[in-house]
Amino acid sequence: MNKELTKNLASGHSACAGCAFPTIVRTILGESDVPVVISNATGCLEVTSTLYPYTAWKVPYIHNAFENAAATISGVERAYKILKKKGKIKKEIKFVTFAGDGGTYDIGFQSLSGALERGHNFLYVCYDNGGYMNTGNQRSSATPFGAATETTPSGKMSFGKMEVRKNLMDIAAAHGVPYAAQANVAYLPDLKKKARKALETEGPTFLLVFSPCTNNWKFPTSQFVSIAKLATETNFWPLYEIEKGKYKINWATEKPKPVEEFLKTQGRFKHLFSEKNKPVIGQIQKMVDAEFRRLASLVE
């Protein structure tokens, strides 16, 4: 494998074929010109990259627990501050946290909020695969409306998850962080630009990255990029950034594809295509349109 690509996260991890997060991690870390130290929440990325006695991490790395990756990096970052002041550490170092959507939107929400509020100098990356994948695909508050998971299965009385995704971008931005951006693994130049900006910005920064899961979204491993692309082309996952409170949409088209195009590629939405559930697709389309209009209205 390309040496430059794997200089931070080696090949030989045990993530599924067609998993998006190795690309996300490598792309983001590749944008740092200075050494990085990583904290990682429990989840798929962690278990597939650190199986003792091996590690895929070529950079200093700490996994503490599921809900405390942000608190953990808070400690690392402050340790750096004081040890640098005392002259014990000379180098410039950046701090990056990786966590799944469960470790971010749900159980790690408080820890993230605390770290953003305290203003630590670090980048928090949430790779959002829309569920608790490591434990076998249970719903999280990032799971899309209508998706079937093991804890929100479709059935006679249910069309899957009945609640709308939590809007974490606005929540992160409400902490007054200098930079937050939503990105997608299918748009690497955009992801790189955002990673660089986030890493170069002083203070806490936040990236929310779309990360398809072949196993639990149920699509062929070869499709992760094309499905991720559809998410943005349908406005299901707009690319945008919030810089010092200012919203900017980074990709838009006159004629977004119908959200159905995205939904039909994945087994988790298959049940929506039944006669009974068809109206749900219409509902999702309305939600996507409304959310994009809202976003557009926030852009100056």
């Binding site: 130290v37 962690e46 950079v59 200093p60």
Partner: peptide
């Protein structure tokens, strides 16, 4: 962790 030249993985599986 801050010993950048000797990277360690803390907290593996």
């Amino acid at each position: 962790l801050l010993d950048i030249d000797n990277p360690v993985t803390f907290g593996p599986v």
